[in-house]
Computed example of a mutant assay.
Amino acid sequence: MSAMLEYQDLKSPIHKLTGATKLIALVFWALASMVTYDTRILGAMFIFSIIMFKVSKVKFKDISFVLYFILVFLLINNIAIFFFSPYEGVEIYNSRTDLFHLVGPYTLTTQQLFYQFNVTLKYFSIIPMALLFMVTTNPSEFAASLNRIGVSYKISYSVAIALRYIPDIQRDYHDISFAQQARGIDMSKKAGLTSRIKNSAAIIMPLIFSSLERIESISSAMELRAFGNNKKRTWYSGRPFEKRDYIAIAVVICVFIAALVATKLNGGRFFNPF
């Protein structure tokens, strides 16, 4: 099994950015992805996000377990889109080019393929950046950065705890899964889909209870230390904004503006090549 989705302390230009910079960049990047279905913009964003992954020195194999679930989600999402709206692309692009008939009312069209390709490209443009944010952001430094830009230190600290807790949830999931499989519960590919869904309850319920127990322990520890009594607090991992932070924010704002301009020029969110 591959490594967990957690912070990796590497030496790269992405790691040197403050946590607040990466959050601001992620927000504008997500907004740019949401406002447009222009294939050219989304394709450029996807390529840029892959380049940023390379620059960060994070290996895709280190998060392959997470990528597997993302790919499964995208496959299910595309099947659901076609099942419930097989002609959404036809309505959007005001044209229809049939490829071949499938079954019943379902006919595969070029416009539907293009529409679903753009939907998938949207995910591919934002997911790498979201993963990059997770694995290159030190939770403590991120909390300090949030507090520096005006976010309450209580909220900032809560966010930091949540980020730290993600790897723990993943470890608990694997430990519980292995323990249940040792008891004879089959979660492998050999079991049918229905059986695996049913058997997953044997993992989810213990995971929920262990998470609630950990939350209670953390809450008690913070209460005993009188967390929240003071209006301000100091941060060991705090870092000021530097030139590279402003450059990174300016770049993603330019991407967001480009998405808005493309939407204006296309007369809507969709780029229509038909």
Rank of each mutant, 00 (worst) to 15 (best):
K59T: 05
D62N: 14
E88W: 11
K54Q: 14
L99K: 09
V35Y: 06
M222Y: 09
P105T: 11
S219K: 10
F84W: 14
V90Q: 03
Y173G: 00
A258C: 12
Y246V: 07
K57D: 07
S156W: 00
W235M: 06
F209M: 14
L31V: 15
P139C: 01
F60S: 15
P86K: 04
V255N: 06
L265Q: 12
D168V: 08
K122S: 12
K57G: 02
T120D: 10
L67A: 10
A44Q: 00
Y93T: 07
I79S: 01
I51E: 09
L74K: 10
V58Q: 03
R239T: 15
S140P: 02
M187P: 03
E141V: 02
F28I: 01
K59F: 07
I161C: 03
Y106P: 08
F84D: 06
S188P: 02
Y106K: 06
K59S: 14
T263L: 07
H174Y: 09
K190P: 05
S210L: 10
A250T: 13
L23C: 00
L102R: 05
V119D: 04
Y123F: 15
F117N: 08
T18I: 02
F28T: 10
V35M: 08
I204Q: 05
N78V: 12
C254Y: 02
A20R: 00
K198E: 00
S12T: 11
A191D: 12
N118M: 11
M129D: 13
E223H: 07
M4Y: 15
T120K: 01
E91S: 13
L31K: 04
I51G: 07
E242A: 15
F60N: 11
F256N: 05
S152D: 15
N147A: 04
A130T: 13
R196W: 00
Y106V: 12
A226E: 03
F46A: 15
T136N: 07
F46G: 12
V252G: 01
K190M: 09
N266P: 06
N94Y: 05
S49N: 07
M4V: 04
M222L: 15
V103S: 09
M4C: 10
W29Y: 09
M34P: 09
A248S: 14
M34A: 15
L10R: 15
D175T: 05
M187C: 00
G104S: 07
V251H: 05
Y236R: 14
E141T: 06
K61N: 14
S125A: 15
T194S: 08
I166D: 02
T107K: 03
P273T: 05
L74I: 14
F114K: 09
H101Y: 14
I51Y: 05
K231M: 05
